[in-house]
Simulated assay, not measured.
Amino acid sequence: MKRYCLALDLKDDPIIIEKYIDHHKRVSDAIISSIKGADIEVMDIYLTGNRLFMIMEVGESFSFDEKAKMDESNEKVQEWEGLMSTLQQALPWAKPGEKWVIMEKIFSL
């Protein structure tokens, strides 16, 4: 199983951060199905301040490109992503249009 760690910021506003947390307490079955359907076996999101940290463990068939294609054709995912985009802001070093930035592993024990 392969692991990816990603980061993204929320807009630095306590009300927006609370909205993001609330939305993630009740993620719809359609969104969960799209995640699992892409061969993502584990997805955990952590928060500190307004910085989000995501850990994904994926199966052999997972591909970021394939997941993006699947998401483009999924109306429910597009609605979810549109809503989340109103709460998120790109990291200062993110490429144009990039939301979640893959982190580089620099230490392992």
Rank of each mutant, 00 (worst) to 15 (best):
Q89V: 13
F53G: 07
R51I: 02
D22S: 10
V77G: 08
L10V: 03
W93M: 15
K105C: 00
K69L: 05
G82L: 04
Y46M: 11
E98L: 09
E60Y: 05
K11G: 01
Q78G: 10
K25S: 08
E57T: 06
I106Q: 11
V42C: 03
A38G: 05
V77I: 09
A94M: 05
E72L: 10
K95I: 07
W80H: 11
N50F: 04
K25A: 08
P14R: 07
T48E: 13
I102Y: 05
L52G: 01
E60H: 04
D71K: 13
M70E: 03
Q88S: 00
P14E: 10
V77F: 06
S34Y: 01
D13K: 09
M84W: 03
L83F: 15
F64L: 13
A38Q: 05
E60T: 04
P96S: 14
H24V: 10
M70W: 02
L91A: 06
Y46T: 04
K105Q: 15
W100P: 11
E75H: 10
S108Y: 08
W93L: 15
I45E: 02
H23K: 06
R3I: 14
K95Y: 05
I106G: 00
Y4W: 13
D29E: 15
A68P: 00
S61P: 00
D22V: 04
D13V: 12
S73T: 13
G97R: 07
G49H: 07
D13I: 08
M103N: 02
I55E: 14
G59V: 10
L87K: 05
R3Y: 14
K105V: 11
Y46I: 03
D9A: 14
V101C: 11
I55R: 14
P92Y: 12
